[in-house]
Structures are given as structure tokens and as C-alpha cells.
Amino acid sequence: MKVIFLKDVKGKGKKGEIKNVADGYANNFLFKQGLAIEATPANLKALE
């Protein structure tokens, strides 16, 4: 799953980066902790 990092995550990505991560990692950790959002077309456009 492609995500946009909202904060730096050690060993995974930095704020503003768009990366592929495992679905479970994104859903169970990144999204719940507010560290990333899904890289949907709307979210990508808002990032610009």
C-alpha cells in the first residue's frame, strides 16, 4: 500500500515521502498512530 508519511518514522520514511509499505503495517500502526495517510489521488493532490 502506498502511504504519505506525516512524520519521520525511523527506518521507514521521512515526513512528506511517499512509499510502499505492507498493508498490515499501514493499517495497524502508521494510520492508528497518525504517522501516515493513504496515498490516494485526493491526498496526493492536497500534498502538492
Results as ranks from 00 to 15, higher is better:
residue 1 M to A: 04
residue 1 M to F: 07
residue 1 M to V: 14
residue 1 M to Q: 04
residue 1 M to H: 03
residue 1 M to W: 04
residue 1 M to T: 13
residue 1 M to D: 03
residue 1 M to S: 06
residue 1 M to I: 15
residue 2 K to E: 10
residue 2 K to N: 12
residue 2 K to Q: 13
residue 2 K to P: 10
residue 2 K to V: 13
residue 2 K to T: 14
residue 3 V to N: 00
residue 3 V to D: 00
residue 4 I to K: 00
residue 4 I to M: 08
residue 4 I to W: 02
residue 4 I to T: 02
residue 4 I to F: 09
residue 4 I to G: 01
residue 4 I to N: 02
residue 4 I to D: 02
residue 4 I to Y: 08
residue 4 I to V: 11
residue 5 F to N: 01
residue 5 F to D: 00
residue 5 F to G: 01
residue 5 F to A: 00
residue 5 F to C: 06
residue 5 F to K: 00
residue 5 F to E: 06
residue 6 L to P: 01
residue 6 L to F: 03
residue 6 L to H: 00
residue 6 L to S: 01
residue 6 L to V: 07
residue 6 L to M: 08
residue 6 L to E: 01
residue 6 L to T: 06
residue 7 K to H: 12
residue 7 K to F: 12
residue 7 K to Y: 12
residue 7 K to M: 12
residue 7 K to P: 00
residue 7 K to W: 08
residue 7 K to D: 07
residue 7 K to Q: 10
residue 8 D to Q: 03
residue 8 D to V: 02
residue 8 D to S: 10
residue 8 D to T: 11
residue 8 D to L: 05
residue 8 D to Y: 08
residue 8 D to W: 12
residue 8 D to G: 06
residue 8 D to K: 04
residue 9 V to S: 02
residue 9 V to G: 00
residue 9 V to H: 04
residue 9 V to T: 03
residue 9 V to W: 03
residue 9 V to R: 00
residue 9 V to I: 08
residue 9 V to C: 06
residue 10 K to D: 12
residue 10 K to A: 14
residue 10 K to M: 12
residue 10 K to L: 13
residue 10 K to R: 12
residue 11 G to C: 09
residue 11 G to D: 10
residue 11 G to F: 07
residue 11 G to T: 05
residue 11 G to H: 08
residue 11 G to W: 08
residue 11 G to L: 05
residue 12 K to V: 15
residue 12 K to C: 14
residue 12 K to E: 14
residue 13 G to Y: 13
residue 13 G to W: 12
residue 13 G to F: 13
residue 13 G to K: 05
residue 13 G to R: 00
residue 13 G to M: 02
residue 13 G to H: 13
residue 13 G to I: 05
residue 13 G to T: 02
residue 13 G to V: 03
residue 14 K to T: 09
residue 14 K to V: 08
residue 14 K to N: 10
residue 14 K to R: 12
residue 14 K to I: 12
residue 14 K to E: 07
residue 14 K to C: 12
residue 15 K to N: 03
residue 15 K to C: 12
residue 15 K to E: 07
residue 15 K to D: 02
residue 15 K to Y: 07
residue 16 G to Q: 02
residue 16 G to S: 03
residue 16 G to L: 04
residue 17 E to D: 11
residue 17 E to Q: 11
residue 17 E to S: 06
residue 17 E to W: 05
residue 17 E to R: 01
residue 18 I to E: 01
residue 18 I to D: 01
residue 18 I to H: 03
residue 18 I to V: 13
residue 18 I to F: 03
residue 18 I to K: 04
residue 18 I to A: 04
residue 18 I to W: 02
residue 19 K to Q: 10
residue 19 K to P: 01
residue 19 K to N: 05
residue 19 K to E: 04
residue 19 K to R: 11
residue 19 K to I: 11
residue 20 N to W: 15
residue 20 N to F: 15
residue 20 N to K: 13
residue 20 N to T: 15
residue 20 N to C: 14
residue 20 N to L: 15
residue 20 N to R: 13
residue 21 V to Y: 06
residue 21 V to N: 01
residue 21 V to F: 07
residue 21 V to D: 02
residue 21 V to M: 07
residue 21 V to T: 03
residue 21 V to G: 02
residue 22 A to F: 10
residue 22 A to T: 13
residue 22 A to H: 13
residue 22 A to E: 14
residue 22 A to I: 11
residue 22 A to Y: 10
residue 22 A to D: 15
residue 23 D to P: 15
residue 23 D to A: 15
residue 23 D to L: 15
residue 23 D to V: 15
residue 23 D to I: 15
residue 24 G to W: 15
residue 24 G to P: 09
residue 24 G to I: 13
residue 24 G to A: 14
residue 24 G to K: 12
residue 24 G to D: 15
residue 24 G to E: 15
residue 24 G to H: 14
residue 24 G to L: 13
residue 25 Y to F: 12
residue 25 Y to T: 06
residue 25 Y to A: 04
residue 25 Y to K: 04
residue 25 Y to M: 07
residue 25 Y to E: 09
residue 26 A to W: 08
residue 26 A to G: 06
residue 26 A to I: 05
residue 26 A to Y: 12
residue 26 A to M: 05
residue 27 N to G: 07
residue 27 N to T: 14
residue 27 N to W: 15
residue 27 N to M: 13
residue 27 N to V: 15
residue 28 N to G: 13
residue 28 N to R: 11
residue 28 N to V: 08
residue 28 N to S: 12
residue 29 F to N: 07
residue 29 F to R: 05
residue 29 F to H: 10
residue 30 L to F: 02
residue 30 L to E: 03
residue 30 L to Y: 04
residue 30 L to R: 00
residue 30 L to N: 01
residue 30 L to Q: 01
residue 30 L to I: 02
residue 31 F to N: 03
residue 31 F to M: 06
residue 31 F to R: 00
residue 32 K to P: 15
residue 32 K to M: 12
residue 32 K to R: 11
residue 32 K to D: 09
residue 32 K to I: 14
residue 32 K to Q: 11
residue 32 K to A: 13
residue 33 Q to A: 11
residue 33 Q to E: 13
residue 33 Q to T: 09
residue 33 Q to W: 15
residue 33 Q to I: 09
residue 33 Q to F: 15
residue 33 Q to D: 08
residue 33 Q to P: 01
residue 33 Q to C: 14
residue 33 Q to S: 09
residue 34 G to H: 10
residue 34 G to Q: 08
residue 34 G to N: 09
residue 34 G to D: 06
residue 34 G to R: 06
residue 34 G to S: 06
residue 34 G to I: 02
residue 35 L to Y: 13
residue 35 L to F: 11
residue 35 L to I: 07
residue 35 L to T: 03
residue 35 L to K: 04
residue 36 A to R: 00
residue 36 A to P: 00
residue 36 A to D: 02
residue 36 A to I: 08
residue 36 A to T: 00
residue 37 I to P: 00
residue 37 I to W: 05
residue 37 I to F: 05
residue 37 I to M: 11
residue 37 I to Y: 03
residue 38 E to A: 11
residue 38 E to H: 08
residue 38 E to K: 11
residue 38 E to R: 09
residue 38 E to G: 04
residue 39 A to D: 01
residue 39 A to K: 01
residue 39 A to S: 04
residue 39 A to Y: 12
residue 39 A to M: 06
residue 39 A to G: 05
residue 40 T to L: 05
residue 40 T to Q: 04
residue 40 T to Y: 04
residue 40 T to H: 05
residue 40 T to S: 10
residue 40 T to E: 04
residue 40 T to C: 06
residue 40 T to I: 06
residue 40 T to F: 03
residue 41 P to F: 10
residue 41 P to W: 10
residue 41 P to E: 14
residue 41 P to S: 11
residue 41 P to I: 10
residue 42 A to C: 06
residue 42 A to P: 07
residue 42 A to K: 09
residue 42 A to N: 10
residue 42 A to F: 09
residue 42 A to R: 08
residue 43 N to I: 10
residue 43 N to W: 02
residue 43 N to A: 11
residue 43 N to P: 02
residue 44 L to H: 04
residue 44 L to A: 06
residue 44 L to G: 03
residue 44 L to M: 09
residue 45 K to D: 07
residue 45 K to E: 12
residue 45 K to V: 11
residue 45 K to H: 09
residue 46 A to R: 12
residue 46 A to D: 11
residue 46 A to T: 11
residue 46 A to S: 09
residue 46 A to G: 09
residue 46 A to V: 10
residue 46 A to L: 15
residue 46 A to M: 13
residue 46 A to K: 12
residue 46 A to Y: 12
residue 46 A to H: 12
residue 47 L to S: 07
residue 47 L to W: 14
residue 47 L to Q: 09
residue 47 L to D: 06
residue 47 L to C: 07
residue 47 L to K: 05
residue 47 L to N: 09
residue 48 E to R: 07
residue 48 E to H: 13
residue 48 E to K: 11
residue 48 E to A: 13
residue 48 E to N: 13
residue 48 E to T: 12
residue 48 E to Y: 13
